[in-house]
């Protein structure tokens, strides 16, 4: 059943693409067919080989070189993502835990965090470009920022959701407030943090793509920009699929890894 659900949009897409091809000029720019994507899109990245030196117009596609291009830029994007998100998660949880210690701290800082959290983060990109230029630092910081905001919100929420009864019970067992924080609050919030990390990773992909699109010299976002400029929709679609695949794989990997620490959850 699930397979059917996944196949349906593909079928609709292909029908639409063929319909456009028979009706409109230059339909392959609007919506290429699946066949086009596979035959021209996937090997087509060889045009960007060695920094895009080979002209698109020569029409010389080489699947091996193309795959190498995709592999290289995938690695670059993934590295950016992993560094940015990892740092962001650490910073976010760290700040969240500090805020979680005192209700006063939370009430002071949480409103600001909430406002940022619900704003479209893309709106902040120009700020980072302004502060750090179009450098790698600006991109990493941007991804870090997004992931951190998510984790601060999730950590705060998780701490608020810890049932006070656990805290009280621990106190009657002789635990000091510090010990309670370490041995009751922290373990109790792990499942919610895991959920937050998944969201942060997903957001991280979006921010990575956005940042690369706007400022990068290399990476899948950059390839997408180049493809867009040249009107190579089939290549855009290939990159989009790659992104989806990577996001899915990373998410599933993380879920698998986190199973151990959440095995106690009823």
């Amino acid at each position: 059943m699930r397979m059917l659900g996944l196949a349906l949009p593909l079928v609709v897409w292909d029908l639409l693409a063929h319909y456009l091809a028979s009706n409109t000029k230059g339909a392959s720019i609007i919506l290429p067919t699946i066949e086009q994507v596979v035959r021209e899109g996937i090997p087509g990245f060889s045009a960007f080989w060695q920094g895009g030196g080979r002209s698109v117009a020569t029409g010389q596609s080489n699947i091996v070189e193309s795959l190498q291009v995709l592999a290289l830029h995938s690695a670059i994007s993934s590295a950016r993502l992993l560094v940015g998100v990892l740092l962001g998660i650490l910073v976010g949880i760290g700040i969240g835990l500090i805020m979680g210690w005192s209700r006063r701290l939370r009430s002071i800082f949480y409103p600001a965090i909430e406002v940022i959290r619900i704003s479209p983060l893309l709106a902040f990109m120009p700020l980072f470009i302004l502060w750090f230029g179009g450098s790698e630092t600006s991109r990493i910081f941007y991804i870090l920022f997004g992931a951190a905001i998510v984790m601060i919100a999730y950590t705060n929420n998780a701490i608020e959701n810890v049932h006070p009864m656990y805290v009280q019970f621990a106190r009657t067992l002789g635990a000091s407030r510090t010990r309670v924080y370490q041995t009751v609050v922290l373990p109790a919030i792990v499942p919610e943090l895991v959920a937050g990390i998944r969201v942060a990773i997903g957001l991280g992909w979006a921010l990575t793509l956005g940042a690369e699109f706007m400022t990068a010299q290399a990476g899948l976002g950059r390839l997408m920009l180049l493809a867009e400029i040249w009107g190579l929709t089939d290549r855009i679609i290939v990159i989009a699929f790659l992104f989806m695949a990577y996001a899915f794989v990373l998410d599933q990997l993380f879920v698998g890894l986190s199973r151990r620490v959440t095995r106690w959850k009823p």
Binding site: M165, Q168, F169, T172, V190
Partner: peptide, 20 residues
Amino acid sequence: QGPSSDLGLVFQEDCIFLWR
């Protein structure tokens, strides 16, 4: 003066630690 391990309390609700 405050809670201590000398004053043991078994609560009405389940509050044993789920993560241990």
